[in-house]
Simulated scan of single mutants.
Amino acid sequence: MALFDLPLDALRGYRPRLCEPDDFDTFWEKTLIEARGHELNARFEPVRTPLTAVEVYDVTFAGFGGHPIKGWFLHPAGAREPLPLVVEYLGYGGGRGLPHTHLLWPSAGFAHFVMDTRGQGSGWGGGDTDDPVGGGPAYPGFMTRGIEDPRAYYYRRVFTDAVRAVEAARSHPLADATRTAAVGASQGGGITLAVGALVPDLAAIAPDVPFLCHFERGATLTDSHPYREIGSFLKTHRGRQGQVFRTLSYFDGVHFAARGRAPALFSTALEDQTCPPSTVFAAFNAYAGEEKHIEVYAFNGHEGGGSCQEEAQLRWLPERLARR
């Protein structure tokens, strides 16, 4: 696949002027206050598995609207003292799956929390969390659910769940709340950017080929899903483009990036037609933290660096999560 986006030199300086809602911060402040009106009620139930080097807990906590959200909490077997904590968010369509698919971080000595994404988990990695909130007309998928009103939009619920997931994971006695990182790839990377802004005391974030950034460019540059869901919705609902992109502006990773402060390790791939590199660089260039780095994979698509990026994270995170 040939390169299709801006040249790398142009990407490194790409800073689009996006329309940020005047009430962006107020919107999220009120959303989280409302969510915290429900008891977190985080429950960690031990799970017997064939794994011998890792202990596993089935987790339930109250997310947006007090709705029950599932997750896995894993840590190295025999741990007795609080460990640095990695909270992970999943890619589009996936669910938390089975515990043995999440061994990377506990094998490296971290406590690890994996949040199930509400309503997802039938594309890969089975999910166990319902989304009980309905919405208006939508194109199949998740991108346009409630898209004409930011208060009803699907990702308002998901991003709120993600903040509450950090709070739930930190409540476990083996999690060191002062040494917490958020990580995720694709959709999980976009969620990571939101959490990096909404949870200001994180020690690090690592958004890998992040989705949910610079929506208007993503929706008009690539024919690939999930961004194409927006165009398909507008193809039928003619004349609603202004309202749709106004809603999405409350959820744009570029706006969250401008509020992030923790050290950040991004990645992008120049042949990625799912999350085009200009959408990722828009967020990276806007990122407000003093320490930030982006790994660029020149001849890869949405798989990005794959295991090479995992290795980069394994080398980078321990230093940021060293005991303070």
Rank of each mutant, 00 (worst) to 15 (best):
Asp58Met: 03
Asp58Ile: 01
Asp58Tyr: 04
Asp58Thr: 02
Asp58Ala: 12
Val59Met: 09
Val59His: 06
Val59Asn: 08
Thr60Glu: 15
Thr60Asn: 04
Thr60Ile: 11
Thr60Arg: 13
Ala62Asp: 14
Ala62Cys: 15
Gly63Asp: 11
Gly63Glu: 11
Gly63Trp: 03
Phe64Ala: 15
Phe64Trp: 15
Phe64Arg: 05
Phe64Gln: 09
Gly65Trp: 08
Gly66Ile: 12
Gly66Lys: 11
Gly66Tyr: 13
His67Gly: 03
His67Leu: 04
Pro68Leu: 10
Pro68Ser: 09
Ile69Thr: 14
Lys70Ser: 09
Gly71Met: 05
Trp72Phe: 13
Trp72Asn: 06
Trp72Tyr: 14
Phe73Cys: 03
Phe73Val: 04
His75Arg: 13
His75Pro: 01
Pro76Phe: 10
Pro76Thr: 10
Ala77Asn: 09
Ala77Val: 07
Gly78Gln: 11
Gly78Ile: 06
Ala79Asn: 05
Ala79Trp: 02
Arg80Met: 06
Glu81Phe: 05
Glu81Trp: 03
Pro82Cys: 07
Pro82Ser: 06
Pro82Ile: 04
Leu83Asn: 02
Leu83Cys: 07
Pro84His: 05
Pro84Glu: 10
Val86Glu: 01
Val86Ser: 02
Val87Asp: 00
Val87Arg: 00
Val87Gln: 00
Val87Ser: 00
Glu88Val: 00
Glu88Ser: 14
Glu88His: 14
Tyr89Phe: 15
Tyr89Ser: 04
